[in-house]
Amino acid sequence: MPLASYQTSVPVVVDDAKCIADKGCTVCVDVCPLDVLRISDMTNKAYMAYDECWYCMPCEADCPTGAVTVNIPYLLR
């Protein structure tokens, strides 16, 4: 069966201006219990690659520059 992609508005937002992933930081990617954050090949900044979030906060709490914001996933907001 062919696959289609499914659009979803993701809860974790990264401020590219503050994110220092391009300088080698991977803190948010490292700490996420669900492993849903990645560093973009195009921008070299962190982003939420998979919408599988427990809105638990380590990514936001541990980010050294305050670039990460966790929102409540839309379906339960």
Partner: peptide
Amino acid sequence: ANVKRSGAISM
């Protein structure tokens, strides 16, 4: 995941 932030007591 990562021991630093894993499990029920992640936060």
